[in-house]
Nucleic acid binder design. Structure first.
Lengths: 344, 344
DNA sequence: TTGAAAGCGCTAACAC
DNA sequence: GTGTTAGCGCTTTCAA
């Protein structure tokens, strides 16, 4: 592959001049400029970005670490980040960790060696230990955390307002007349799951509805657990008239449980769900759900990162909290709930 | 950030020695080695991979160009590629093109400047013109095409055997007793759509069932077109008793059409679909579908690429054709089809 | 084994 | 404006 040197020779100018025409850093006389351009064309010259990075001491690359790109939430996140990055002339180096802390550490190490200009990170939950990220920060590589933010570490972040979203969603159930509302949460190891539970409790408290421990079930964010816990919650006489699921997968399981129990949704049991899978629109009944702005989280995260790269480390970390949207659909707005259910 | 030079100084050895301990290229005496290691630790030295790339003339990076990572098929593709790449010590630089040819060209250009060692490419369909990819090849950067392979260009590829898969699927319908089988294809601009149609025709031909043009409808791979064309196909007296959808999204539309027409699936109308969305398992009825090995396509593609990188351009391009799996579910195996429908 | 030094391709400071 | 040159951080001959 051709180099500046060869181009310079062919055009009969110095390498400095060639560099100046390709970067546009310093003006070059029209005729020399023409000659250089011609030589570039003839040689099929492609500037070597690696050499440039070495010299300039930045790579125009961003690291992107997510748990699993196969999960729609994260694929949208990545897409948003990529669009923003590209707009600012950065490229994305992507990693999947499957939420395993050792893979996260490895990714971070690799990214440091690659001298990326910044890192977008969805931290593995329950790691408890964040030295790898603070070290990265100390080396002067900015990190912005997406979706989840590690406690006690001064880092930029953009996340979804889980508690508000869950509260709004449960409040909607309350407004529909429900007072016996169950929840299937995700593992309380997960921050997001805890926050959603918190929102649920908040909504009940605001409506002065006492919390019933037996209406709170901890699941695993998988369809199967939605199914099992759904059955558990809905069996027996005094079961909830509405269910709030902490994620979409579990809602699917709940629907199956409802069907098998011969209950009707939403007439006998309303269902609302955190997460707006593409499913929500196609499953019967259409699911009332909290739509998370995954794409935006990625997009804003990348923008925040390039900004941070440009401005150096600021004193206080920026913490964006993005709003969700409550999409009200069939699963909570069928006929009015019956009294026997609506009353505690 | 510390450099070899600083490490060398601190350890009281030459830079060459430092390099030798980090790369392990040449043996180093135990004590010097220890000193170097200690210095590295103290300084928190991180080898600069950029400098290394410049020197070594390879980057251990692969470009990955897909149309949209938000599409589950592609996110699995990417995941597979990443897993394989990582195993062989390569990193992935990802791009989305939304199937726009100018974005594909841009991505390729950027990747060339970045001196990636190879490129995994899902070509934008209907581009008609492939000079950008043959140029890349000529520059010595191997490319392997995934899922779709551009005609008349000598390039490695790994794809799914669309025609066989479609044929098997339609054959299954035939075995269930159907003889009036409709198809909703994707745009015939798309190679994959054409191949699936071909498989459909092949299956009918093999069963000596004459092809009826009015049973073939060209859709857009979107839910809405499944809905509209489904209605069209299923209205009227002499409608098909089974429908084959060329992709998952359209199948969802078809289901809706069936519901609105008051038909029952599979009793009155069987449905089989190409693509095994996560949906297939949750939608009612569960959809008989062709599962594509997206992850494997990515994985094998990356392996083929690193192999090609190692071996240089071979004479004949490798063309992997991966098998699909037919998942038979409710939508084709309800009660036996009625005679009036089953007979032409 | 080890050290010195050249050089990967580029940009930017400097002198002209 | 333009050319010359040092140097980004690394690996790898080549001599010792």
């Amino acid at each position: 592959m051709a180099t500046v040197k060869e181009v310079a020779k062919k055009a009969g100018v110095s390498v400095g001049t060639v560099s100046n025409v390709v970067t546009g850093a310093t003006p070059v006389s029209p005729k020399r400029r023409e000659r250089v351009l011609a030589a570039i064309r003839e040689l099929g010259y492609q500037p070597n970005h690696i050499a440039r990075s070495l010299k300039l001491r930045h790579t125009q690359m961003l690291g992107m670490i997510v748990s699993d790109i196969t999960n729609p939430f994260f694929s949208h996140l990545v897409r948003g980040a990529e669009d923003a990055a590209l707009k600012h002339n950065y490229l994305l180096l992507t990693f999947n960790t499957d939420d395993r802390i050792e893979r996260e550490k490895h990714a971070l190490a690799v990214l440091r060696q690659r001298r990326v200009d910044g890192i977008l990170l969805v931290v593995a939950p329950q790691s408890g230990e964040y030295s790898h990220i603070s070290e990265t920060l100390e080396m002067g590589i900015p990190v912005v955390c997406l979706d989840r933010v590690p406690p006690k570490i001064r880092v930029d972040s953009v996340t979804v307002d889980n508690v508000k979203a869950a509260r709004d969603c449960v409040r909607h159930l309350i407004e529909r007349g429900h007072r016996k509302i169950g929840i299937i949460t995700g593992s309380t190891m997960l921050q997001t799951a805890r926050e959603r539970l918190e929102g649920y409790k908040k909504a009940l408290a605001e409506a002065r509805i006492p919390i019933r421990q037996e209406f709170i079930q901890e699941g695993t964010f998988r369809t199967s657990s939605g199914y099992e816990l759904g059955k558990e919650l809905l069996s027996g006489q005094d079961h909830p008239s509405a269910l709030f699921c902490s994620n979409g997968m579990m809602a699917l399981g709940v629907l199956k449980a409802i069907e098998e129990l011969g209950l009707r949704c939403p007439e006998e049991i309303a269902v609302a769900v955190f997460d707006d899978l593409p499913l929500a629109e196609v499953v019967r009944p259409h699911l009332t759900s909290v739509a998370q702005p995954a794409y935006l989280v990625g997009y804003k995260g990348a923008e925040l990162l390039v900004q941070r790269i440009a401005s150096g480390k600021g004193k206080t970390p920026a913490r964006l909290l993005l709003p969700t949207e409550l999409k009200i659909r069939e699963s909570t707005i069928g006929d009015k709930v019956r009294d026997s259910h609506a009353k505690a």
